[in-house]
């Protein structure tokens, strides 16, 4: 088995691993988008920018305060979540009564501000972020060499995704969330403070983006535009999966990452656009998306 379809297995598995890692980020980001969209009906265009902010918080913590990776893994999502809470309370909240498109436009403006400000301050080139000591090196799996950090990213993302799925689908808090997504007025009439839930949901959703940013920092470097093009791919992922399904967001994210990896092996020129082509095809066949309900 020296060659699979004429491709050396090392290259194939290497690309599949890269695809899996990209897929992990797609999953984490589209999960956050789906949670936010479900509750707020806002397509959070600032999601990519907040992913970048998460990575930058990690880098700033390390550079100026000497706080390392593990600290950043906790602090950066909290910081991004806090930013999210402020944005929701001061701005997004004013738009729930008007057309949902305004939420998209507002968060687009916010994305410009975040990316522009960081670019102004730090330039466009990336800042390297070291892999933590504990996760350096790699494991030889026999058929391929697996860098430990990459394995960790996949495992950690999966764990967070599944944890989020569990929290939403299987806990009491998740039941409130699902109910409020369907009928916020009635949930409020049961004595639950829905506006606070909405704020927390947004905070949580963007904290997931912040977490993804920290996980990405050692792989992709920390740069102001790191989330800018990524987020559009994630939108396509969300359209393909269909909004409103948590598990759908996770599965679609990972699946498309893998497909992209395969495209890199067999037809590298198309790897950038394969997700968009799939989106177009899915829309023709199943307009609500693979896991979506028409709403």
């Amino acid at each position: 088995m020296s060659h699979l379809f004429g491709i050396p297995p090392q290259a194939l598995f290497g690309q599949l691993l890269l695809g899996l890692i990209n897929g992990s980020f797609y999953a984490l980001l589209s999960l956050g988008l789906a949670v936010i969209f479900g509750m707020l009906n806002v397509v959070n265009m600032a999601h990519g920018a907040l992913y970048m902010v998460g990575a930058f918080v990690a880098w700033l913590l390390l550079t100026y305060l000497g706080v390392g990776y593990w600290g950043a893994l906790v602090l950066a999502p909290l910081a991004v979540g806090a930013v999210g809470l402020v944005l929701e309370r001061t701005m997004l909240r004013r738009l729930y009564k008007v057309d949902h498109l305004y939420g998209l436009l507002l968060t687009f403006g916010l994305a410009l501000i975040f990316e522009g400000a960081f670019r102004h301050q730090y330039g466009v080139s990336g800042q390297p972020y070291p892999i933590p000591e504990l996760l350096k090196g790699g494991i030889n799996l026999g058929f391929m060499y697996l860098p430990t950090y990459r394995g960790w990213v996949v495992a950690a993302s999966l764990l967070v995704c599944l944890g989020t799925w569990f929290a939403i689908e299987r806990t009491k808090l998740g039941a409130y969330l699902r109910a409020a997504t369907e009928n916020p007025t009635l949930v409020q009439a049961f004595g639950i403070n829905v506006p606070v839930m909405v704020s927390l949901t947004y905070g949580f959703g963007v904290a997931l983006a912040g977490l993804a940013g920290v996980l990405a920092a050692p792989i992709y470097q920390v740069s102001p535009l790191m989330g800018s093009n990524l987020i559009i791919v994630v939108f396509a992922v969300v359209v393909i999966g269909g909004m409103g399904s948590i598990l759908g967001a996770i599965v679609t994210g990972l699946g498309l990452g893998l497909l992209e990896g395969l495209a890199k092996v067999f037809y590298p020129e198309a790897s950038n656009i394969v997700v968009f082509v799939i989106m177009a095809v899915v829309l023709m066949v199943k307009p609500a998306g693979l896991f979506g309900r028409e709403r």
Binding site: K172, A175, F190
Partner: peptide, 16 residues
């Protein structure tokens, strides 16, 4: 106002 994304039990125990 029965919630479709909740089971009967979840609906029953939803209001605090």
């Amino acid at each position: 106002g029965i919630f479709s994304s909740l089971s009967v039990d979840e609906n029953l125990t939803l209001p605090p």
